[in-house]
């Protein structure tokens, strides 16, 4: 069986004054045409994993792995030129806050057309048409007007939908979404995720959904990998999250205050040093 992404023993390290710091400590996973959720708290290395796949770790940070492949092609030693083709064209990334991912001095339309034309030889007018279609697909009403707006003129929810449209425009096969909705309000959050979900399903893409919110990930993914201190401590099907066993996963689930089921005290996670040392669980399939 071929995988879209196949990663074995991935490590991301940063040199510090007191030795090296390992942000990701030897994780293995594969991604098929499925939705994989990577969950963890801040500092667990989940975002670094996403960035490492696109080789977006800046020096002095270093990526090492026994294998990091896309469609059987090596990504680890690919040239920077090759990586530029991969980024966007085959693998796209959506970041947390659209305010920082969109260029403030270009209109939405200019940015979308430029993004498409760097990857495909299409005429400006054709690119414009594709941008319009794409905005329509992310449920933006009146896309002609939106194309002429500047990023500061759109709301957070619309900004993130524009980002999704822009990232999916060159028809990539893999989408990495790094906390795509944590800057958004609850009601908009679900709308944006529904749109993303629909597009990923329709196009048969692979999705890596990185988030701190276990419940949200369970809702929008097929498979979940829970990260702690740079390693995967547990992996399971999203539908079987209720049967999760690792105390860290359970701790994350129980720490969330639930309006419907009030408790006098919330369960507090007791971090066991052994979790840090336990070998990484493989999320390969």
């Amino acid at each position: 069986m071929t995988h879209l992404i196949d990663v074995e023993n991935l490590r991301v390290t940063f040199p510090t004054r007191s030795g090296t710091f390992e942000a990701v400590r030897g994780i293995s996973f594969t991604l098929g045409k499925e939705r994989l959720g990577i969950v963890g708290e801040s500092g667990s290395g989940k975002s670094m994993t996403g960035r490492a796949l696109l080789r977006l770790i800046r020096p002095p940070g270093q990526i090492t792995a026994d294998r990091m492949e896309m469609h059987g092609q090596d990504l680890l030693n690919a040239s920077e030129k090759r990586m530029r083709q991969v980024r966007g064209r085959q693998m796209s990334m959506i970041m947390q806050d659209p305010k920082f991912s969109l260029n403030p001095v270009m209109t939405v339309g200019q940015q979308m057309i430029e993004a498409l034309r760097t990857h495909e030889k299409v005429s400006k007018s054709r690119a414009g048409e594709r941008a319009l279609e794409m905005l329509d697909e992310v449920a933006i009403r009146n896309p002609e007007r939106v194309l002429t707006l500047y990023p500061h003129e759109v709301s957070g929810g619309m900004g993130q939908r524009i980002m999704i449209a822009m990232m999916l425009l060159p028809k990539p096969e893999i989408l990495i979404a790094d906390e795509p909705t944590s800057a958004l309000d609850v009601s908009v959050q679900l709308q944006v995720l529904d749109i993303m979900d629909k597009l990923v399903k329709e196009r048969g893409m692979g999705l890596i959904f990185i988030s701190h919110d276990l419940n949200l990930v369970a809702k929008f993914c097929d498979r979940i990998a829970v990260m702690y201190a740079g390693r995967i401590v547990e992996t399971c099907k999203a539908s079987e999250l209720g049967r999760a066993k690792h105390p860290y996963t359970l701790g994350l689930l129980n720490a969330v205050p639930d309006l419907e089921h009030p408790r006098a005290r919330l369960d507090v996670l007791k971090r066991d040093p052994a979790w840090r040392e336990a070998p990484s669980v493989s999320a390969r399939q």
Binding site: E41, S42, H212, D213, G251, L252, A255, V256, P257, A264, R265, L266, D267, V268, L269
Partner: peptide
């Protein structure tokens, strides 16, 4: 804050 830390702070406030 992270959810586990949020739980600690909410307990503290209570």
């Amino acid at each position: 804050l992270d959810v586990s830390v949020q739980a600690e702070i909410l307990n503290l406030l209570a």
